[in-house]
């Protein structure tokens, strides 16, 4: 026990020294939004709007800190003790993991907000080089020999899991589709992948900046963002005939907000996402808003046939167990 005390002692001393931080807005409330990669710009914008809204509503100042990273990595950090008041991640499974492994929020968290707790949606599209030199129009073109596909590692990237399931769903629902055909299809697809970055952002960099690959499987919003950043004269967005309805979820982390006394502001932070303002900002950053009236603030979101995870994989828990767990379908693709 002496040892433990010694460790606590030195830890406390370290803490005491290092907690003297620059005075970053001591007054008012502080909260932390732990989010995934593709929402950096969205939440930077939204946080400003929300701070104004909160000030008008309650007269209080609120400082929102933002942490971005791969969805799985972020969930891991929250499980290990990153003090997130709200999590806004790439897929429901990651928040399920927080609920299951750390019990920081109830298992039925998805029912607590409208639309299964996904205030905005997106889908997986193809980003190709200008002029579409390889003539990529739909999913079958992506698995042709000689086409290089860029996508991230589904094991570590939420976006890549959506991309994987989009391909799976397409093959499953295609005429004569079956689980075996779908497995064959994704196996062919990943044989065409030369680089598996650990996050969706890394994949975009590989495709855009390093000029590797013919087609990038991208979040719709990331594709538009990249088009904006790197010039529409270099890339094109191609919509496949069908794709997946990606539903990035948001949730309140009960244990944290209750301890820090931030429940009210955190709850309002999430609710505000569903208002006209929140939906407008989401649309502006190329996420598909749930409110039809807000869609005009974004690009023309083409209407393509979208299936859900439930349709093609029986929900996230099942999808994870079947496809992405150790020894799952994704691992089998890479088995020699």
């Amino acid at each position: 026990m002496k040892l433990k005390q010694a460790i606590f002692g030195s830890a406390a001393a370290l803490f005491a020294i290092t907690s003297i931080n620059p005075p970053a807005a001591r007054a008012g409330q502080k909260m932390l939004n732990v989010s995934f990669d593709p929402t950096r710009e969205l939440y930077e914008d939204y946080d400003v709007a929300f701070a104004t809204h909160w000030k008008l509503k309650t007269g209080q100042e609120v400082t929102i800190n933002l942490s971005n990273g791969g969805s799985g990595k972020q969930a891991r950090a929250v499980i290990d003790g990153l003090q997130a008041d709200v999590v806004t991640l790439g897929l429901a499974y990651d928040i399920d993991a927080i609920a299951e492994k750390a019990q920081l929020l109830p298992a039925d968290w998805r029912g607590r907000l409208p639309d299964d707790s996904s205030p905005y949606t997106s889908t997986i599209v193809f980003m190709v080089r200008k002029g579409n030199p390889k003539g990529i129009k739909d999913w079958p073109d992506v698995v042709k020999p000689g086409v290089q596909v860029i996508t991230a590692n589904p094991k570590t990237s939420g976006g890549a899991r959506w991309a994987y399931l989009a391909a799976w769903g397409y093959a499953l629902q295609a005429p004569g589709g079956s689980a075996a055909a779908a497995k064959d299809f994704v196996a062919k697809l990943y044989q065409n992948v030369p680089v598996l970055n650990s996050g969706a952002r890394g994949s975009t960099t590989t495709f855009v900046e390093r000029e590797v690959g013919d087609v990038l499987l991208a979040w719709e919003n990331e594709a538009y963002l990249a088009l904006n950043q790197f010039g529409a004269d270099k890339f094109e967005i191609v919509y496949p005939s069908t794709s997946i309805l990606a539903e990035p979820p948001v949730a309140l982390v009960d244990k944290v907000v209750d301890r820090d006394g931030t429940r009210a502001v955190a709850q309002e932070y999430l609710n505000y996402l569903y208002t006209d303002d929140g939906q407008r900002i989401a649309a502006k950053h190329y996420f598909r808003p749930r409110l039809a009236s807000a869609a005009k603030y974004g690009p023309a979101f083409p209407k393509i046939k979208l299936f859900t995870v439930r349709d093609v994989a029986g929900g996230w828990q099942k999808a994870q167990a079947t496809h992405f767990a150790d020894g799952g379908v994704f691992d089998q693709i890479y088995q020699p």
Binding site: A11, L14, T18, N21, A77, D80, G81, L82
Partner: peptide, 14 residues
């Protein structure tokens, strides 16, 4: 123990 005492080591400066 750290949680109980609201001391942050990981994901913080210490």
């Amino acid at each position: 123990w750290l949680m109980e005492h609201n001391i942050r080591i990981i994901f913080a400066v210490p």
